[in-house]
């Protein structure tokens, strides 16, 4: 998994509450055999004017000029501002995969849906919670100043604004450790590789019919 330490990036504001996983990545794209390549279909129904199907050349599709991510000033954004209950809906991991593939490294919102929140950490994406009033300020400032960037300093647990102001945020220590080191669940489990091997050898001796 990608590690996350200090990230500075352009901010894009998505001013809607209850954005669900089907909105993040519509279900017709889930038949894919890949975990990457979902970026062009992130927020597909909002982003394009036509109906998206797998296999289309997305570069030729008509863009919805009113959708925030299509505005020139937000091109290349890597920090997403969102409203409450972001990521509600299904448990499928395609939603964080799509955000990550698009280029987002951090989503800041007043609250997230549980499973989505956990899935983000599994996929190297930092979901960060700030109060509604702080969110209001970020939305206002991002709209007012083109090129508005934020620095997310995970070791110090600070959001650093362009004016130098710093806001503290909470993060579970274990998840913080995983992100800082780029450990995914697999990486963590493999720290016990010797134990797994020892267990396996004992098992092979006791129940040889389970092997081979």
């Amino acid at each position: 998994m990608k590690s996350f330490v200090v990230h500075t990036g352009l901010v894009a504001p998505l001013d809607r509450a209850n954005v669900d996983t089907d909105a993040i990545i519509p279900k017709q794209f889930l038949k894919s055999i890949k975990r990457s390549g979902f970026g062009p279909n992130l927020f597909d129904a909002w982003r394009y004017l036509d109906k998206g199907e797998p296999g289309m050349d997305n570069t030729r599709r008509p863009l919805n000029p009113d959708f925030v991510l299509n505005a020139e000033r937000y091109r290349g954004a890597s920090v997403l501002l969102a409203r409450k209950n972001f990521g509600c809906g299904s448990s499928r991991e395609h939603a964080p995969w799509a955000l990550d593939d698009y280029g987002f490294r951090c989503v800041i919102a007043p609250s997230f849906a549980d499973i989505f929140f956990a899935n983000c950490f599994k996929n190297g994406l930092l979901p960060l919670v700030l109060t509604e009033s702080k969110m209001d300020r970020l939305f206002a400032e991002a709209a007012a100043f083109p090129g508005y960037r934020l620095t997310i300093d995970l070791p110090r647990q600070r959001v650093v604004k362009p004016d130098g102001e710093e806001w503290e945020f909470d993060v579970d220590p274990f998840r913080k450790d995983c992100l800082l080191n780029g450990w995914d669940d697999i990486g963590l489990t493999l720290r016990h590789a010797d134990k797994i091997r020892a267990f396996e050898m004992a098992r092979r001796a006791e129940q040889p019919w389970l092997f081979g």
Binding site: S91, E93, D185, I186, T189, I196
Partner: peptide
């Protein structure tokens, strides 16, 4: 199990 767990089992022979 889910897809992440399928990968986890393939890689580690274990499940959390």
């Amino acid at each position: 199990i889910g897809t992440s767990e399928v990968e986890h089992v393939m890689a580690t022979q274990c499940l959390l």
